[in-house]
Amino acid sequence: MEHTKKHPGYTTYILVWLALLVFTSITVTIAGIDLGKYTLLIAMFIAAIKSALVINIFMHIKFEEKIFKVFIFLSGMTLLIIFILTFSDFLFR
């Protein structure tokens, strides 16, 4: 299959990998601090950034056709809705 844009070089991959490591250490550090109800929110936020990096760069979605982006977006939205609905139980129990 032909790709419309060029893939990134090794430098980008290594930078992304280092960024992922940094985010992981932030997650671990924050887990030790008691931030109350914001703990989960921050952990999810960091996880979202990490998965965006993996999906866009490592999985090459950034360089793919639009249809793949639409598919990934819809799947992500479904996941988000599932989270929100689960919290309609957890937060009000």
């Binding site: 609905l85 309609s88 937060l91 009000f92 129990r93």
Partner: peptide
């Protein structure tokens, strides 16, 4: 179909809101 799953759980003890 993704949004209705907890109707299997009405008596499980989950929140009234849910």
């Amino acid at each position: 179909g993704y949004l209705v799953w907890a109707h299997h759980m009405f008596t499980s003890g989950m929140s009234d809101t849910a």
